[in-house]
Write a protein that binds this DNA or RNA. Structure first.
Length: 442
RNA sequence: GCGGGGAUGGCCCAGUGGUACGGCGGCAGCCUGCUAAGCUGUUUCUCUAUGAGAGCGAGGGUUCGAAUCCCUCUCCCCGCGCCA
C-alpha cells in the first residue's frame, strides 16, 4: 500500500498518477473524506480515554485510603459507554478507509509511457535473429525497431502443440481427462529439458549473487493479502478447501512474505533471492486464449528473481534483474524484444514494469515470457519490511522478475529450434551440459 | 492427533489485578589529551503533537482498571503417536 503520510502531504502526486493510469479519482476523494472523519474521531476518543485513565487512578487512590469509589466507578462506566460507541464507529471508518487505501495504486515512474492499451507499450530494444515466416514480415517489422535482424522462412513453423505431440513429448488429451483443460503431461526428453532449464537458471543466478530458495507452495490469507493486491488477484488463485491456504501463483509471493514484519540491518541489503517453485493459476477470464498446448496453463514451474534493497538503489536493480533475464534469453539464442509497459497496463503495485517478449515463429507473434517490476515501497509497506538506519527504521524496496517460466520457454524452443521438416528440436548449446543431449527426436 | 512448556519494545529478561523492571545493542550529548571506563537522555506505532493515546503472539470476555483471571485461535520447544 501507499504511504498515508505522503498521501496526506502530497495528494496531487496521487491524483496525477491515477489519471495516468486512466483510473477513477473517486477513491482518492473518498479516502480524504474518511481520513478526516477518522482523525476527528480519534481525537475525541483519546480525550475520553485520558479522562478515564485519570479516574481509574483516582479509584486506586481512594481504595488505598479506604474510601468509597462507587461514585467514580459509575462515572467511568458512563465514559466507557461513550468510548465503546465511538470506537465501534471508528472501527468501521478505519476499515472503510483502509479498504479504499488499498485500491490506491503506486506512483508511476516518469519513464513509463502514458497510454491505455498494450498496443502502445514502448519497444525498448530488439535482440537476436528471428525466424520470420514471409506472411509475418510486415507484422514483425512494425513490432521491432528498424533494421532488426531476421531470417525469412518460406514455411510457417509447426505449432508447438502439433510438434510436441508428434514427438511424443506432451499428452494434453489425457491431462484433460484427469484434471481438465490447461493441464498437461510432459514426457520423455521434454521433462529432462525442463529440468535442465531450471538447473541452468539456478546456476545462472547463483553465480550472480542470488540465494536459492524453495518456498512453501501455499500461503495463508494474511500473507497473501499483504504481499499482493488480493481483491483483484483472488480469482486467479486456487483455494484449499477447509483451510486458510492458497496455492501460490508465483514464488514472488512466498519470497516477499518471507521477511514480513522484519527489520533488516543496512549491511544485509541488497538481498538477492531466487525462488524456485511451481505456480498455480486459475487463468480465470482467459477463455478462448491459448487454449491449446502448454503456453497458458494452470500449473508451471518458474525461477523468479526477487530483490530487497534500499530505496535509493531500486532503479538500478530493475535494470539488473531485467539484464539477468535478457542474458538468459540471449544465451538460449532466443530472439526477443524488451517492452516498457505503459501506464494503463500496470498493476497497482508497479511503479514500472518491463516485459521480455520472445518471438514465436509459429504463432508469428512476440509473446511475454518475462515480467520485471519495480514495486518500490508499495509491497514492502504492507509487508512491513524495514531496515535500520541512524534516523530510524525505513521501508525497504522490493523488485521481482521472472528468470525462467519453463513451459513458455519450452514452447519457445519448440517453435524457434525445430528442424524445418519437424523431425526434431535442437537444444541450445548452454543447456546441453544439463540435458546430456543436443537434440530431441521421436 | 495426544500430553507438557512457552511467546513481553531492535535483542535478552523481570513482572500472579493498580497502568511494563532491569540489562544489552543503537543513537545523541557530557566527561576524559585517542575507538578505554564512566555519566545523562533517548529508542515502537498513531494523532490536529511543549500534549495525549495505543502497544506484553492474535482475537474476544470479566473488571473502574488485565502482561497478570477466563474463552477461542496461531506459532515455537519437549515427549508420545503417525509418516515419505
Amino acid at each position: 500500500m501507499i504511504d498515508v503520510h505522503l498521501l496526506r502531504d502530497k495528494p496531487n502526486a496521487f491524483y496525477e498518477s491515477a489519471k495516468k493510469r486512466f483510473m477513477d479519482t473517486g477513491p482518492l476523494d473518498r479516502f480524504f473524506e474518511l481520513d478526516e472523519k477518522w482523525r476527528k474521531n480519534l481525537k475525541e476518543i483519546n480525550d475520553l480515554k485520558r479522562e478515564k485513565n485519570e479516574m481509574s487512578l483516582k479509584i486506586s487512590e481512594t481504595v488505598k485510603k479506604k474510601g468509597d469509589p462507587s461514585e467514580i466507578k459509575k462515572n467511568v462506566r458512563e465514559l466507557n459507554e461513550k468510548i465503546d460507541h465511538l470506537e465501534s464507529e471508528q472501527k468501521q471508518i478505519a476499515s472503510d478507509r483502509d479498504a479504499v487505501l488499498k485500491t490506491i495504486p503506486n506512483i508511476i515512474h516518469e519513464s513509463v509511457p502514458v497510454c491505455k492499451g498494450d498496443e502502445n507499450n514502448a519497444v525498448v530494444r530488439y535482440v537476436g535473429k528471428a525466424r520470420v515466416f514471409s506472411e509475418d514480415l510486415e507484422y514483425f517489422r512494425n513490432s521491432t525497431p528498424t533494421n532488426s535482424k531476421l531470417v525469412e522462412v518460406e514455411k510457417r513453423p509447426i505449432s508447438h502443440v502439433d510438434l510436441l505431440e508428434k514427438l511424443n513429448l506432451i499428452d494434453i488429451p489425457r491431462a484433460g481427462k484427469v484434471a481438465g483443460a490447461r493441464f498437461y503431461y510432459l514426457k520423455n526428453r521434454l521433462v529432462k529439458t525442463e529440468m535442465a532449464l531450471m538447473n541452468y537458471a539456478v546456476d545462472f543466478l547463483s553465480e550472480r549473487g542470488f540465494n536459492i530458495v524453495e518456498p512453501p507452495y501455499m500461503l495463508n490469507y494474511s500473507s497473501m493479502d499483504s504481499v499482493t493486491d488480493l481483491e483483484t488477484f483472488k480469482d486467479a488463485l486456487y483455494k484449499i478447501e477447509g483451510e486458510d491456504l492458497y496455492l501460490i501463483a508465483t514464488s514472488e509471493h512466498p519470497i516477499g512474505a518471507m521477511l514480513k514484519d522484519e527489520i533488516l540491518e543496512e549491511d544485509d541489503l541488497p538481498l538477492r533471492i531466487a525462488g524456485i517453485s511451481p505456480c498455480f493459476r486459475r487463468e480465470a477470464g482467459a477463455h478462448g486464449k491459448d487454449t491449446k498446448g502448454i503456453f497458458r496453463v494452470h500449473q508451471f514451474n518458474k525461477i523468479e528473481q526477487f530483490i530487497f534493497c534500499k530505496p535509493e538503489h531500486s532503479w538500478e536493480f530493475l535494470e539488473e534483474i531485467l539484464g539477468n533475464a535478457e542474458e538468459f534469453c540471449r544465451s538460449l539464442a532466443l530472439p526477443y524484444r524488451v517492452v516498457n509497459i505503459c501506464s494503463g497496463e500496470l498493476s497497482v503495485l508497479n511503479a514500472k514494469k518491463y516485459d521480455i517478449e520472445v518471438w514465436f515463429p509459429a504463432q508469428g507473434r512476440f509473446r511475454e515470457v518475462v515480467s520485471a517490476s519495480n514495486n518500490t515501497d508499495y509491497q514492502a509497506r504492507s509487508l512491513n519490511i524495514r531496515y535500520r538506519t541512524k534516523d530510524g527504521n525505513k521501508i525497504i524496496n522490493t523488485l521481482n522478475s521472472t528468470e525462467v517460466a519453463t513451459t513458455r520457454i519450452l514452447v519457445a524452443l519448440a517453435e524457434n529450434f525445430q528442424e524445418p521438416d519437424g523431425s526434431g528440436i535442437r537444444i541450445p548449446d548452454v543447456l546441453v551440459p544439463y540435458t546430456g543431449f543436443d537434440f530431441i527426436s521421436y
